[in-house]
Design a protein around this nucleic acid. Sequence first.
DNA 1: AGGTTGACCTGGACGC
DNA 2: TGCGTCCAGGTCAACC
Length: 283
Amino acid sequence: MPELPEVETIAQGVNARARGRRIVSVFFGSKPEPLKSPRNEMLRALKHHSIAQVRRVGKHIVFDLARGAGTTPVAQWLVHLGMTGRLLVAQPEAPIPAHTHAILRLDDRREIRFVDARRFGRLSVLWLGEDGTSEGFTGTGFVGTGREPLTISAEEFVALFHRRKAPIKSLLLNQSLLHGVGNIYADESLFHAGIRPKRQAARLTRAELLRLRKALQTVLRKAIASGGSSVSDYVDADGVQGFFQLEHCVYLRTGEPCRVCQMPIQRIVLAGRGTHYCSRCQS
DNA sequence: AGGTTGACCTGGACGC
DNA sequence: TGCGTCCAGGTCAACC
């Protein structure tokens, strides 16, 4: 479900609440759960280890896991929320929501709960350094694919789209180019840059691409400051909704008047995704 | 090679 | 109330 701002909000929230805590027990649901790593590997990486840090890489939430507080991480737990995934930090007495697939109990009794109705989310483990097994081994940890949209330079951004014939919106969604951008922020940033989603990337001018980078970064930063967009069931680590959806200009506003020119917002399907734009403000 | 489509799941909103 | 249909923030494999 969540895109960069929602994942960032959740990762910051979980980090603030769980950093430094030790995991005392782990529960996984019974059904064919959304695990990418074997269950025993996941248990081995999580149980009795300390959470050194929780952060976002693209749309992934990365838990750095250490043998003890203040020691070098030996493994990482990777959580991808898919479309409806939630990661909650809750008191043990709080009712367990339907579709809870994983629970980590912490040494302060609180629980980190992974909830995902639609089961598109994924959980996996990465071992670090010499403590790792050969499978999934990496010396440096998870870096994901694609560039980080909030920090990419103007030149790097322009270069991403060189000779690309696909519609610009399809490429914004391509995680091997930029990571973290999904359907909401692709549509919103194209609106703010005044560019139609179908435009062939290679035919955008340099000025348009620079505008797009600026618009994308502005939209993402504002959305993070608003705690993300709650469109269906997104909530942060405390179960609180974001409110950036109130500032959406085009996303899911089909037929409603453009906030700038009053023209009805159009909806088309592009790359299999609902795509929203203003035919007057975007060319 | 690069781009587009369908499949994977479940649930909510809406129309009849 | 119930049923059918459409829509949904993501990602892959399979196809053109």
